[in-house]
Every structure is written in C-alpha cells, then in structure tokens.
Design a protein around this nucleic acid. Structure first.
Lengths: 338, 338
DNA sequence: AGCTTTCATGAAAACGTTTACGTTGGCGCC
DNA sequence: GGCGCCAACGTAAACGTTTTCATGAAAGCT
C-alpha cells in the first residue's frame, strides 16, 4: 500500500478539525480537548501520517540535526567518538550528519559549507581548522564545539583531551611508582596539538619531580617506523635511559621492536610507555603500559556541550578538558622498587 | 556581520531580476543570458546567499541525504565502512545521516522511523532486520540497500561480503598450498549470518578438495575466550588436527594462546588461520594468517548501488557479493611442503 | 443577570524555494 | 512589413508545516 503520503490536511479532514488543531495536538502543545486529541491521534495513525521534516524545518528554522566534521581517523578512535556522539544525540532526539575523512583545509571548508543550513549545530574535530578558517567558513552564529583543537578564539567553545595531564600522570608514575630516573621522551610531529601537549606534560612532570635530571627528548612522527628509529637512537646514547615514554602507542610499538632487536628485556633492562591505549596495546608482549582516553566520553561530552549551546544554556566561549587514565601493564616496570 | 540571512528574494532585488531567474541561473538550467547570469552571481556572492535546504527539499521532494543504519560495531570495521560510504557519497554530492550503535530491533525500528523523510535512501547493516522488520518499518518505497544481510526478499537490494568464498579460499590454501590435511574449524555463533556462511565455505572446500577427511568442527562464539576453549578442546582430541581455521580473528587469538600454553609451536606443530584481518592480526607472534575484507570497498559499493537505485538505473532486487582476499602470514605454515 | 475571562478552535499568513505558465521582445522568413 | 517562433524573463501557485490572530462559547465573578 504505497499511497501518495498523508499530509496534515488529510489528517485534519479525517478527524474533522482544522490543520491547526492537528498540529497542536500532535506536538503536544495543549489547546485541544482530550476528546479531539484522541480523534486526531487515531486519524493520524490510520493514515500513517508522519510529518514532513522539510516543511517543518522551513518554518521552524530547526533541523534537529547536528553535523560532525571529522578528519581521516583510524579505527578505534573514530568509532568510539561517533558512538559517544550518536548515543548522546539520540537521547536528545537529535540526528547526526557525518562528514569524515576529508583531507586538507579546502575539503574541510567545502564539507562545512555543505552542512550549512542542514544542521543546528556543529561538532568539529580537524587538524585543519584554525581561527581564520572558522571566521571564513562559519560566518553566521551556528553553535559550534571544537574537539581537541588548539584554537583559543574568543566566542568558540572547545573541548580537549587532557593530553598534558595524562602525560604528566604517566611520567609521574614512571618516576614515583616504578622508580625510574632517566626518562626519555619520544615526541610526536611538530605542530600537532596533541603531540605538543603531551610533551608539555612530560616536561612539566620532569621539572617538578626530577628537576636535576636533564630532559631527553628525541623526535618522532607518530608512526611505528619513527618509533623504531627513535628507539635505536636512544640505545646509542652513552647513558641509556631507564625508561622511555613515547608520545603515542604506535611509536611505542616500533620502539619495543628496536629494544627486542637489541636483545634488551622490557621492562627489566628498559621500561616503556605509550599514549592512546590502542587495542593492540594489551596484546603486545609484554602488554604496553599506556595512557588511555575515554573517547566515547569525549564525544558524549562534546555533544552535551553543543546541546547546551544550542539551548542557550551556556556561553559560547567555554573551554573544557577531559581526563585521561593511566593503564599500567607490563612494559613500565611498576614493580621495580618492590 | 551576522545579518539575518539572505533569501532568494534579496538576491533577485539586488540583481534586478525575478526570483525565478535567480533560481534558474543558480541551478544552471539555462534560460538566462550570460549577462544576467553574471549579475546574479555577483549579487549572490555579495549577499553570501546560500539556498535554504528545507525550502528546496519541500518542493523538490529530495534531501540529497542518505541514511546509514548500523549496529554497535567495533573499531576498524565501523570506521572503514563509514569511510567508504562517506567518500562515495561526497563524490556524488550526497550527505550522510548516521544512526549507529543501536542495540535491539526496537531501537533499530525507532531509528529507521526517525530517518523517514529526512533521507532519499537507506543503507542498512543490522543483525535485527529481517523481512518482517522491513515490511513493517519501510512502508513506502524508500530505496534501500541491505549490507551483509540474510534476507532474500523480493524487491530488496542486498550486498554481502563473500564470507563463503573467503572461507573456501583459506581452506583451499591450507590444503593445497600449505599442505595440511586435517583441518579443524572453529565455528561462530549459531544464527549469525557471517558465521554460517564461513562454515559453509569451509565445508564446501573440504568436501571438494579433501573428501575423505572427516569434518572437524567445534563450537565458538566469536569471542577470544571461546577461541581459547575451542583450542583446548581440539588439543584433547586423540588425533590432533594439523591446522585450525577459526571463523574469526578474535577466536584465533584465543586459540593461539591455548596452543602456546600447551607448549606447541605455531605453525610447526599446528597451523592456525583466522577471518577478518583485524589490526591486531599482524602484531601477533607469529603474525596471524587470515582472510581480509575490504570494508571500505563494501561501503563504497553499497552506496553506488543505492545511488543507482535512487536514479532508477537499477532494479531493486539485485544481490551482490564483495570478494575477500586471504592474507598469508606466519601462522598458517605456508612453507610446509617447501 | 451582566460582565469579563478562559479556552478550544479555525482561518490565514508565513517560511524560501521550484516550476508551470504567460508575457514580452527580437529576429528570420515569406 | 506582417507573421510566427523562440529565447528571456516575470507572475504566481505550490510544497506541508507552524503560529498568530480572530471568533465564539462556556464558565467564573460580582
């Protein structure tokens, strides 16, 4: 039975009321007798009436949809983020329009423009956005929450992962609990926001907790290969560090390989820690100690914040950070002083 | 400069033409002089005019949006699928409305209804949908492509992973190339479409290529733990199989652990293969041989098919399958006969 | 009883487009 | 030069809702 499609008028005719009453009744705004409401209900159900979103949006100026602009993310992070956003959105009756895996500022800009007018708010996680980008492509006052972004523009709401706190905590753990002293750090790519924040956390912890130990930072680029190279470089140093903290797990994986190749025992000869808690982490031998981020929580939180923004419950210039937890496994040598 | 928002009327006034001409000009339908077209263009640009999607959809009956209904998927699979869909959608000027991680037929139905009228077509991947579900919740003729679904209803387009072919190919590889003879199979949960197809592929290959060898199938449930149990069970058999083919990688991981625990060498003492090619697979020691599915390709293909359906270029009852490739790594003992 | 207040209801405008149709004017053709 | 034709353009209807305002009736108050 693929009839044309029932409109509000059909329902009105069927229930012998005006379209206005149907609208009021179905939107639960009151102003209708219990009796007529019932009559309208049965008419609507009988005709399989479902209101037309386009028409509704046209006059309401609301789409009940939020847009998510995401870069080319890898598995776990992406799916968890979407999960968090989607769950929170659904529970608020919002829909989720996704535009992912764009790859460059131009593509991001195009995607953003295309969303324009289709969404009531935006969630943006992208390495390409900076203040200029936003000013150019987000002209009107579309509520927006930036995720894990370095922009600190006035009037922009941004939610970050507490990379710095996480790195601090892991460094502290390596120093205090595991009893290491010389802790080297494999940095991420320059200009990467996450990488810089993590380096900052490491520096801060070393400065406060081991002020006499010189910093030992080698370069990396978040790839497994760069971690391997960094590991080899560290082993060449005249005084081998007792622990290595890689700015992400992939580099830790590469680094671990370099250590094994050199015949070193981890963590007996040298300890290791990563950042991200990717799924592989717990399957390495020994399992990798790392800093884990609750990504779904990040998504959920971002959406809550956006919803608050859209409802006018919150200012648009708030900045927040989401905590990390350190996952102590095999590679960091937690029992060294035991 | 957050002005109200320019409408087509404003552009018309600015360019001193009628709204009809503006519409024609901006939609590139011809019927306007090159000169007026230019005048309209500059007016539009100057006013930052961007057409209202709601109004357009209202009259056009098109949203240029497709919906994706997905279950609670794990990392890699989810992100790759979305990537494939998104990329193909973008290149066609379509938007992607996602509703994921629903968890039960009721939630899926609600999500589907909510999409109703917001999308021009649907991509559905869900263990909860069967023919009855579709008939109940997809009343009108919304173009739909089912992904990896067991429904074989008339008038439904469905695109599957060639689980059967992949399992056949891997079994064949174990028999012919790696030279194994007794190949055991760890099955997935009963009622799971993927699991059953994979079992079918194993059976078929054994029947054709090693008809005299009795089938050796133990139960599993796609979890690591169940794989571990299955592994132990297999080792208890009076005649140990020379190779084990697990219906998914997680079970292979558990199985591998069981073998190691028993002090067996893989693949020297016993070979092993999985299915899915999850990211962990290549990081196991030895790296896991497995069947890999090009998930992004699956998404892309599904969207292409849907687009064809929407354009009326294709019948709505086509069924397709997407090939798998076997990834030969360390665990299957490919060099046994070498 | 007369007055005001409340409340359910309907008529109609508005939202911003697209498009069918009508109206021009210019041009070629006989 | 008159005729018809075609291209460019404008007018207005239509899409399906929500919402403002008017209307009338019922109910409450003095």
């Amino acid at each position: 039975m693929t009839t044309k499609k029932a409109t509000i008028k059909d329902v009105a005719r069927e229930a012998k009321v005006s379209v206005a009453s149907v609208s009021r009744a179905l939107n639960g705004q009151g102003g209708v007798t219990a009796e007529t409401l019932e009559r309208i209900r049965v008419a609507a159900k009988q005709l399989h009436y479902v209101p037309d979103n386009a028409a509704r949006s046209l006059i309401t100026r609301r789409t009940h949809t939020i847009g998510a602009l995401l870069p080319d993310l890898f598995g776990e992070f992406f799916s968890e983020l979407i999960r968090g956003i989607d769950l929170a959105a659904r529970s608020r009756g919002l829909h989720l329009l996704v535009s992912s895996s764009h790859d460059g500022a131009d593509e991001a800009a195009a995607a953003l423009r295309a969303m324009h007018g289709r969404v009531d708010g935006m969630l943006i996680l992208s390495p390409w956005v900076d203040e200029a980008f936003l000013d150019a492509n987000l002209t009107d006052g579309l509520p927006t929450v930036l995720i894990n972004s370095s922009v600190q523009a006035s009037g922009r709401s941004v939610l970050n992962i507490d990379n710095r706190g996480g790195a601090y905590a892991m460094t502290e753990h390596l120093l205090r609990v595991a009893g290491h002293k010389d802790i080297a750090f494999i940095a991420g790519p320059a200009g990467n926001f996450d990488a810089e924040q993590r380096a900052l956390g490491y520096r801060e912890a070393m400065r406060k907790l081991a002020p006499k130990v010189p910093l030992n930072i080698v370069a990396g680029s978040f790839t497994e290969e760069s971690g391997y190279q960094a590991g080899r470089e560290l082993l060449k140093q005249e005084r081998r560090p007792s622990a290595v903290f890689a700015a992400n797990d992939m580099m830790a994986v590469g680094c671990l390989y370099a250590f094994k190749e050199a015949g070193l025992q981890v963590p007996a000869d040298i300890a290791l820690a990563g950042f991200d808690d990717i799924p592989i982490a717990r399957y390495l031998t020994p399992p990798l100690s790392t800093v884990s981020v609750h990504i779904a929580e990040l998504g959920r939180n971002a959406l809550e914040r956006l919803a608050a923004l859209m409802d006018g419950r919150e200012q648009s210039n708030s900045t927040g950070a989401l905590g990390c937890a350190i996952a102590v496994r095999g590679t960091c040598g937690a029992n060294r002083d035991a």
